[in-house]
Design a binder for these strands. Structure first.
Lengths: 231, 231
DNA sequence: GTGTTAATTTCGGCT
DNA sequence: AGCCGAAGTTAACAC
């Protein structure tokens, strides 16, 4: 890992063309040759970058560039896609280098997979008398997140999202169309379950007779924990 | 901008919970108080981070943490969402600080907007005798990228994507449903145009009678340039 | 300000 | 290896 604070201009050419005018920025050069160009604001996304696998070559600037004040040129190229990032460095203000080694990586908790498990474990959240058929029920158009039966024994397909968007409703609609063509399942109703449901998504779902259910991750975790303690 | 190379463990709590075990990493502390935790690999995405607006407070570790080898604790909090990132620093291996100032920002060329302009300028790419009605034609369910007429004078709605995914087909389908309900436009056919069309998206589109068209950005730019020179 | 869509998306899982 | 879907997505743009 090498960190350089430098006044530079940057040009990217690849899937699109992009240019950064002369300014002072952070250059983060990783072990795999990849390079990030960061400013002192924005979010975690760099102003410009080159993804691995790629490699850096450092050039001496030609006379024209020297006349413009360029002291060195970093060229980062990706073998496969022929993407290229060129950094024209005018002045280096600081530098820091250190061997980091492999990172053990991030451990996450609370994503869609957990919501799905929590709802499957607490299937009565869907309504009294509901029973779980199975999670990740495969169909020709993809896996239904949760398949259940209601108190009358009718099949219910559940699509689970962290954030309920219009896409999720479309997805569930495709599953329902397919399942309702199968006499083994029909009639199948749909439930769109998410931690947060966007108004447009709710409207589309309800227009199509799909029930919307807002999931409270914290509460479901609580139920799960207390059940774990009691039984 | 402050850059620190440190051996640390990190805990995030907010929209989800996440943990990074003890390892040596780069801490990038930006002017707005935001913090990025980078490893020496991966892509431009940090292992963990805190988005602005937020602020950093540095704590002395309590006796337990000192016993574990922690020398200082960085706590980054976001006022609104109550998200929190806690970095337990064991050892600092290097540090670099510099005032960067505002960045002029990135200038891009070659995104979806350009594809749309190129296709509108070269509407005969859709077929002989096609004419442009207008770009960004507003409807109740969103803007149709390009509205055109074919050689017979029938309306054609075009959805343009850089990468043609199933979502784009659904989007175009919604526009077509709406436009075909309007006797002023009906019958309306659809064209799904993209630089790259995924097989599933192509299948769904063709099932629904939507024509797929692969756009060659380089070639269209060439046509545009030569027309610019000739006329 | 709110909502919708694109992104040089990246990342993980599964076929 | 390729395809598909989620993401603490973030960022730009329209209403």
């Amino acid at each position: 890992m090498r960190l350089v604070i430098a006044t530079c201009s940057v040009d990217y050419s690849g899937r699109l063309n992009a240019h950064l005018p002369l300014a002072t920025r952070v250059l983060m050069l990783k072990q795999d040759g990849s390079l990030l160009v960061h400013s002192d604001g924005g979010s975690y996304k760099p102003l410009n970058w080159m993804s691995p696998p790629c490699f850096l070559t450092v050039h001496e600037p030609d006379d024209d560039l020297v006349a413009q004040g360029v002291s060195q040129v970093w060229q980062v190229t990706q073998a496969k896609t022929s993407d290229m990032l060129v950094v024209a460095i005018h002045e280096i203000h600081g530098e820091l280098e250190h061997e980091l080694g492999e990172d053990p990586g991030l451990i996450k908790e609370g994503v869609e997979a957990h919501l799905q498990r929590l709802l499957a474990d607490n299937i009565e959240e869907l309504g009294d008398g509901f029973t779980l058929v199975r999670r990740e029920f495969m169909t020709a158009v993809g896996p239904v997140d949760v398949l259940a039966r209601d108190a009358d024994g009718n099949t219910v397909a559940v699509e689970i999202k962290r954030r309920g968007d219009i896409d999720g409703v479309e997805q569930l609609t495709r599953y329902l169309e397919l399942l309702n063509r199968d006499p083994h399942f029909a009639p199948v109703t749909g439930v769109f379950a998410a931690q947060e449901i966007k108004p447009q998504a709710r409207k589309l779902a309800e227009d199509r007779g799909i029930r919307c259910l807002v999931l409270d991750y914290e509460r479901l975790t609580g139920i799960d924990d207390s059940q774990g303690r009691l039984f």
